[in-house]
């Protein structure tokens, strides 16, 4: 089964158009103005890549690759330079994005359990709302568990999303042990034969050992209830985040078995370039990107389209 069948990549492109225009304009400016491929151009490339949050080391790595590849070629045209860089970037993403089906076999796993984790303000609850809407739309029954029992009105926020998506919700009083919410949600899903469970968790900074331990407990509670559960654990990353995202991915993967990333807020000018580094270091696939606050503003991530959207000219 494939979700998001009528995925419209134009929207993804629109979301990233500011990024694309910026990079392509810069490339066109720098490259067409000069005959050779001198240090200035390489430095410009370095700036473009670094300012996309790709990370200094990754930027240098990509540029070195391009340098080597171009060395043996006489074609140093703008198109060829772009093509070469693009190929290098796609290769980084493809390393970890080998899967293509999101829900392999829902009947087999039923309930299919997804745990959503991340730092404060990354966009976890909004992502759950959008996901719930998409699952529901594709004919699946969905229940969400409000396991953020800490932040004021987190419950209410998820409740509104659940209503918008038309799905069930399990919630308890603020201050309740979040694992008990997770437990009840899964129990209810099993009892009522619900297809998909999504557990929302409180935002936590990855260097807070007690909160990370709490997350580990939630994971263990879910594991006990259902074989191979949670089937998916998504780390939600704010697309504006810089190099700290790499640490987030590392630390969260220590307490939860991360299976994928969701990059949010990519409808601004943030480039989300940190994706490349996490993919290369953590081998984590990017599953979705958030491109707005509406319930439909969630897109499946697709490596080629992502890189194409960054580099293709209109």
């Amino acid at each position: 089964m494939k979700l998001f069948k009528n995925l419209n990549f134009d929207k993804l492109r629109d979301g990233l158009s500011k990024t694309r225009e910026k990079i392509v304009n810069k490339l066109t400016e720098t490259i067409s103005g000069k005959a050779k491929l001198p240090a200035e151009i390489l430095e410009e490339l370095e700036e473009i890549l670094v300012t996309s949050d790709i990370g200094f080391d990754t930027a240098i790595q990509i540029i070195d690759e391009v340098k080597i590849k171009l060395k043996s070629e006489s074609d140093r045209s703008e198109e060829n330079i772009l093509r070469t860089i693009k190929a290098s970037l796609v290769a980084v993403l493809e390393k970890s994005n080998s899967y293509n089906e999101f829900l392999p076999d829902i009947e087999k796993y039923k309930p299919f359990i997804i745990l959503i984790v991340g730092v404060n303000g990354a966009g976890k609850t909004t992502t759950i709302g959008k996901l719930a809407y998409n699952f529901k739309k594709s004919g699946l029954s969905v229940i969400v568990g409000a396991a953020d029992t800490f932040r004021a009105a987190a419950n209410e926020q998820l409740e509104i999303w659940a209503k918008r998506a038309g799905v069930e919700i399990v919630q308890k009083k603020n201050g309740t042990d979040p694992s008990s919410v997770a437990f009840e949600t899964v129990a209810k899903a099993i009892k009522e034969n619900i297809d998909v469970v999504m557990i929302d968790t409180a935002g936590r900074l990855h260097n807070k050992s007690n909160l990370m331990e709490e997350l580990n407990k939630i994971t263990r509670v879910i594991q006990k209830q259902s074989n191979n559960a949670p089937q998916e654990t998504f780390l939600v990353l704010d697309g504006n985040t810089g190099q700290n995202a790499v640490l987030q991915a590392e630390e969260f993967s220590k307490v939860a078995n991360l299976t994928g990333l969701v990059i949010t807020k990519l409808d601004g000018t943030a480039k989300g370039g940190v994706v490349f580094q996490i993919c290369s270091k953590q081998c984590l696939p990017v599953r979705y990107i958030g491109v707005g606050e509406d319930i439909e503003d969630l897109q499946s991530f697709e490596a080629n389209a992502f890189v194409d959207a960054i580099f293709s000219t209109k």
Binding site: N240, G242, Q243, N244, T269, A270
Partner: peptide, 11 residues
């Protein structure tokens, strides 16, 4: 957010 990357200058 202190975790913001390069785009902080733009926003």
């Amino acid at each position: 957010d202190s975790m913001t990357g390069q785009d902080a200058v733009n926003s």
